[in-house]
């Protein structure tokens, strides 16, 4: 073995060993278990998977989670992009505003949960405010509106994070391109549609993946505001995993974890392949 390789392996060893012990090996065990029975340990093929896919709570949770992602991701990506473009064009005080938008990301969920409760309570601030305006509010947490509340708190928390990511993407576009376009008479809009937008392809995919990952963390808000069994419209995969865990239903959890891992890995693989192809054509 080359000395270089040996040094690299030595440097990697502690990290890799830990990852193997705490993640990789147990995950292989989970993979194995997903094909076996809980009691007796006989091979049952795909029946754990079928049990999960036929489970009503799973289907409900999956459809809620997908609905949440389909509503939130475009909304968050769109809003944060608009905000990023706006901020990026500012002549002054850009970092000042960036700080404000990023702040919610730093705030621990548990420490603002009282505020969300006050805001969305039946006799809470929001309904009170609506009352002043002559509108009638509703019971936000125990109707389908709970879904909207969750979307709102997700956007509140993640907007600044995505803005920073977009600005990082925007700042990679060479300034000369804009200058050249302006010299040949292109206006702001033209610049935006012909220079900015076409070069955001990679950024949007990467931000999409990161926002997708962060979307799984919205469980914290859902759990803190509404507990283990919230309104049906915000019963997510994360709640289901938690409830399975309380019942120690390892078989269902294993099968579901394997499926989730496969879906996410495939998404990620697709993203990486695309990037690689792009790099090859670029160079």
């Amino acid at each position: 073995m080359k000395k270089q390789t040996l040094t690299a392996f030595l440097l990697l060893l502690p990290s890799f060993l830990g990852t193997a012990v705490f993640v990789l090996i147990p995950f292989l065990d989970v993979f194995r278990r997903s094909f076996f029975q809980a009691v007796g340990g006989s091979f049952v093929g795909l029946s754990n998977y079928i049990a999960v896919l036929e489970n009503e709570a799973f289907l409900q949770a999956l459809s809620n989670t997908l609905r949440f992602l389909l509503v939130c991701l475009p909304l968050l990506l769109g809003l944060s992009f608009a905000l990023a473009v706006l901020l990026y064009s500012l002549p002054f005080a850009r970092s000042f505003f960036e700080a404000f938008f990023l702040l919610p990301m730093a705030i621990p969920v548990a420490s603002v949960v009282v505020f969300w409760r006050m805001l969305f309570h039946t006799d809470g601030l929001l309904n009170g405010l609506l009352g002043y305006g002559g509108f009638s509010g509703g019971d936000w947490m125990n109707t389908d509106a709970a879904f909207g509340v969750l979307v709102f708190s997700y956007i509140w928390k993640n907007l600044g994070y995505d803005v920073i990511l977009w600005i990082a993407g925007l700042s990679q576009i060479p300034k000369e391109q804009y200058e050249a376009a302006r010299v040949s008479g292109a206006g702001e809009l033209r610049c935006f549609f012909s220079i900015t937008l076409p070069q955001m392809g990679d950024t949007i995919l990467m931000i999409g993946v990161l926002s997708f990952v962060n979307a799984f963390r919205v469980f914290r808000e859902a759990y803190l505001i509404a507990g283990n069994y919230p309104h049906n419209s915000i019963y997510m995969l994360q709640h289901l995993f938690n409830n399975w865990f309380t019942k120690l239903d390892i078989q269902k959890m294993s099968a579901a974890a394997v499926m989730l891992a496969v879906v996410i890995s495939l998404m990620f693989l697709f993203l990486e392949r695309r990037n690689e192809r792009k790099e090859r054509t670029d160079s």
Binding site: V21, F22, V23, I25, P26, F27, D29, V30, V209, L210, F212, V213, F216, R217, L237, Q238, F241, F245, I250, M253, S254, A257, L260, A261, I264, F268
Partner: peptide, 15 residues
Amino acid sequence: MVMPFQVTMVSSYLV
């Protein structure tokens, strides 16, 4: 890095 907690929660529990 991108795996949500729910994916690794069973395996972490086992170990």
